[in-house]
Amino acid sequence: MIRSAEVEEYGVGGHAVAGLVAPSRGGSELTLQQARLAPGAATPEHRHDREELVVLASGVLEVACGEKTQRVLPGDVAILPAGTCHQLVNVAHEEAVMLLVGGAGARSFCRDGRELPTPPWLR
């Protein structure tokens, strides 16, 4: 059992992320994060070595994945293939809240190929 009161939230730029399921919390195959993205904010463009799912709970996102950009509405699921650069942009006037599902131990990279350090909420 993972109690929400025990989960620390980390601020990163215009968004905040809480690691709900990660190896340190007993997740051996998957990670689950809750993320909040401020109005007008965007994640840095990046890619992972494993597939990632974005489940939007509230707000409106534009998700750029590879050469394609799509609008994501509450209840929608964006599937981000492994190795494909992507970016999430909050295009609404309200905070976007989402769940992110990924593979435990996934590695992340900048567009230029530099590996990013594993953030504390995924350890």
Rank of each mutant, 00 (worst) to 15 (best):
R107I: 07
E67V: 05
L32N: 08
H93K: 07
C65Y: 03
C110L: 15
I2M: 03
G14H: 13
A64Y: 00
E45S: 15
E29T: 11
E95Q: 12
R50T: 07
L116P: 01
R71A: 12
I79F: 08
V54A: 12
P119G: 14
I79D: 05
A16L: 04
P39R: 05
V54H: 03
E8F: 02
R107W: 06
S24K: 09
G59N: 02
D76C: 11
I2N: 05
L56Y: 04
A92H: 00
E29S: 14
C65W: 04
H46D: 10
V77R: 04
A38E: 14
L53N: 09
E9H: 01
A38T: 05
G105V: 11
G14P: 12
R3T: 05
L56Q: 07
A16I: 10
R3F: 05
P119D: 10
E6V: 02
A38Y: 00
P117L: 13
G103Q: 13
L61H: 10
S28D: 13
V91A: 06
G83L: 05
L37S: 03
R47E: 06
V54I: 14
A78F: 09
A78Q: 07
G66C: 08
Y10N: 01
E6I: 03
V54T: 13
M1W: 00
V55T: 06
P74V: 12
V55F: 14
V60R: 14
E52F: 07
G14R: 11
G19V: 03
E94N: 02
E45V: 15
L30S: 13
V55R: 02
Q70H: 05
T69Y: 02
A106G: 09
I2Q: 09
T84F: 03
Q70K: 10
A41H: 09
F109E: 10
G27F: 09
V21K: 00
V89Q: 06
C65L: 11
S4M: 12
M1F: 02
G113A: 12
L30P: 00
G27R: 10
Q70F: 03
L80W: 07
P23M: 08
R3S: 11
A41L: 07
M1N: 03
M98N: 02
A18S: 15
C110P: 00
M1R: 01
E9R: 15
A96Q: 01
V60C: 02
S28T: 11
E29P: 01
R3W: 00
G75C: 08
G14V: 03
A82K: 12
R71L: 06
R47N: 06
V63G: 03
L122S: 12
P23R: 04
G40C: 10
